[in-house]
């Protein structure tokens, strides 16, 4: 009888940016009471093959909420159902279930942060470290009429990577986009950044 007294959390939704997935909900507000929450999930496999099984979230089996980082729970590119309930002492509310199952392939991918520098004639790029799921497609070219654009896949961010050996007197431009193989998608390109190499241009 006491179970129904505690209201269930409402307005569940998932905010997902760059493969970081945050489940949020409206808190249950009770005067002078500390309400906790418990989050569970079910992948499409469970819903098809073992529908009675719900799995406790890695980080939010008992959390102060009203949000939960479910990134380590959502580890496959299939729809996931998520549910939350409130806990007050020994009371637990009914489960609130996310209206639409969440698939990580809907995550928002932002253009990566990018720093370019040179060491002598060597063009070096360092991309934002967005985590192990991310690779980067880097496009670079020499700024001159009908130049050819080159592309290179960089396996991870956070370390300086050699891009090109430049010729003196030329201007080189670079842009990059994030790639997430696990969902088969990529971000928009970053802004273009250019760097110039001193020295006389080579005789043609």
């Amino acid at each position: 009888d006491g179970v129904a007294a505690l209201p269930a959390p409402q307005n569940l939704s998932v905010h997902s940016i760059n493969m970081k997935h945050l489940l949020i909900w409206s808190p249950v507000v009770l005067p002078e009471e500390k309400v906790y929450y418990s989050v569970e999930y079910q992948g499409e496999y469970e819903s098809l093959y073992t529908s009675d099984i719900w799995i406790p979230s890695k980080w939010c089996s008992r959390t102060e909420g009203p949000e939960c980082d479910v990134t380590d729970d959502i580890t496959a590119t299939v729809p996931y159902s998520l549910r939350v309930r409130a806990i007050l002492g020994s009371q637990t509310s009914a489960w609130s279930i996310l209206e639409q199952p969440f698939n990580r392939n809907s995550t928002i991918l932002t253009p990566p942060g990018m720093e370019i520098s040179k060491d002598g004639f060597h063009l070096v790029i360092e991309l934002e470290d967005l985590g192990p799921q991310f690779q980067f497609l880097v496009a670079y070219w020499r700024r001159e009429p009908d130049t050819k654009e080159h592309a290179k896949v960089v396996r991870r961010g956070g370390i300086p990577v050699h891009l090109e050996t430049m010729e003196p007197g030329a201007l080189y431009c670079v842009k990059a986009q994030a790639l997430v193989k696990a969902i088969g998608r990529n971000s928009a390109f970053s802004q273009t950044k250019c760097v110039e190499v001193q020295g006389e241009a080579l005789p043609l």
Partner: peptide
């Protein structure tokens, strides 16, 4: 396999779920 295996430990349950859903994908 995934249906027959009875798992109690949450970490193992999560890992098996991760593999099972990846296999589904």
């Amino acid at each position: 396999v995934f249906k027959d295996h009875q798992e109690l430990k949450p970490q193992a349950l999560r890992t098996i779920s991760s593999v099972a859903n990846s296999f589904l994908y």
